[in-house]
Amino acid sequence: MAQRRGSALLLAVPVIALSLFLVGCPKRPATTAASAPPPTGSPSPSAAAPSTTPSPSMTPSPAAPSTAAPSTTPPAPSEFTANANLKDVFFDFDKYDIRPSDARILDTNATWLKSNNNLVLIEGHCDERGTNEYNLALGERRAKATMNYLVAQGVQANRITIISYGKERPTCTEHSEACWAQNRRAHFLVKAR
């Protein structure tokens, strides 16, 4: 499923690129602007159509890709909301396997999801230790492991989207194991179909 969605998104990438601008355009650092090479003759042409044509609007579209979005494009994370029936699960340091005590939580979550036909967004999170990039991968694995568990319990995979925030969205900001343990989590959000 994930692979099929990915392929569809790839096809949409050039279209997205044409419409995407930074808010207000990037500032030009004054110290090198005039010495930058001309845009022609680039030794590294980009995959995504290096167009210099301005888009109709200089403001980016607010959320997920909407241009030529195939039906498999997941809704924007901002469209999902928390639900008190879905409890977080937590992970050991640098691990992404589901702990036995958390499996029971996921069983309860799965039961609720099977009786409520929502879309689900599973966020994977890490504690503050370690590098951004590795934690993005680790958070991805945590969200994926959680998704796999729910699917094994009978929740349809095509209802579930995962997102890794790595260590970028901690719930607790103290520098202690008690705090880190709260941050190593998978968090659930839902969106009505």
Partner: peptide, 14 residues
């Protein structure tokens, strides 16, 4: 340093 749009290089699921 140029007035060029930001490009999506990879926008896959995950």
């Amino acid at each position: 340093f140029e007035q060029r749009p930001v490009q999506v290089v990879a926008g896959f699921l995950g």
